[in-house]
Computed example of a mutant assay.
Amino acid sequence: MHPVSLRRLRRVERINLPDLSTVLDLNLRPAVQIAQALLPTMKQSGWGRIVNISSLAALGLANRTSYGAAKAGLISLTRTWALELAKTGITVNAIAPGMIETEMFHEKVSPGSKEEQLYSSMIPMGRFGQIKEIAAAIAFFCSGEAAFITGQTLFVDGGASIGRSLI
């Protein structure tokens, strides 16, 4: 299945069930497989960090049932694994990016377009996130300073998860 077909926006009554299965499989299965592959070594060393990448869409966005469900599933895995691994020295957290300025974003939204202005106006900070800001959040969760943080989801979204600015 071509990835472009998975980004197609669909109302709930028009969801293609094979596409739903593919989106869930592409987002959840690798997280489980990677965790299973690395956990024996992490447990043996008594230390480890798992950081899942979710999305602002986990909170619900119209026409994004499949993607939102998959990203909400990653938050559920994060919380469940954090409980299961709490006494092992392994922490499990998630990053939930909002609109991040990437090549893929600009394939859909032209720089300087009215559409880009509309999207940025929905973000309280009035701008898109940068890849380095996501990397910094991941680096924090992987650091020793985050050793007492587990089961959490950090929304790196310019305030979009808390609502729109009234100004």
Rank of each mutant, 00 (worst) to 15 (best):
A57M: 11
G48H: 07
V51G: 04
W47M: 08
I53V: 15
R49E: 00
S45C: 05
A57V: 13
A62R: 13
A62T: 12
R49S: 03
A62C: 04
A58L: 12
M42D: 06
L59R: 15
S54Y: 08
G60Q: 10
I53N: 04
A35P: 01
A58P: 02
I53T: 12
I34F: 12
A35Y: 01
W47E: 11
V51F: 06
M42I: 06
G46F: 10
R49L: 02
M42F: 14
L56C: 01
Q36F: 01
I50F: 08
I50W: 07
I50T: 01
R49Q: 05
A58H: 14
W47R: 13
L39A: 07
T41F: 01
S55Y: 04
L56R: 14
A62H: 11
P40R: 03
G60N: 07
A37W: 07
R49D: 02
L59V: 04
S54D: 04
A62E: 13
S55L: 09
I50D: 00
R49Y: 03
A58N: 12
L59T: 07
L39S: 07
S45D: 11
S55P: 04
L61R: 13
Q44G: 07
G48W: 06
V51I: 15
I34M: 13
Q44I: 01
N52V: 04
N52R: 08
M42P: 06
M42L: 09
K43A: 14
S45P: 00
G48C: 10
Q36A: 12
A35G: 03
G46K: 10
L38D: 03
S54F: 03
A62M: 06
I34S: 10
L61P: 00
A35D: 01
A37P: 01
Q36P: 00
S54C: 05
G60S: 12
A37M: 02
L61V: 14
G60F: 07
W47K: 13
R49N: 04
L61W: 10
L56K: 11
M42T: 09
L38A: 15
P40Q: 06
L39V: 03
A62V: 07
L38M: 12
P40G: 09
M42E: 05
I34L: 15
L38G: 11
I53R: 03
Q36H: 11
S45R: 13
A57C: 10
L38C: 14
P40A: 09
L39T: 05
A37I: 03
A35F: 00
S45H: 11
S55G: 08
W47F: 11
S55T: 02
I34C: 11
I53Y: 04
K43E: 13
L39F: 03
L56Q: 12
K43W: 06
W47L: 08
M42Y: 02
L38Y: 12
V51N: 02
L59S: 07
T41M: 09
T41R: 13
L61C: 04
V51C: 08
A35W: 02
A37S: 13
L39K: 03
S45Y: 00
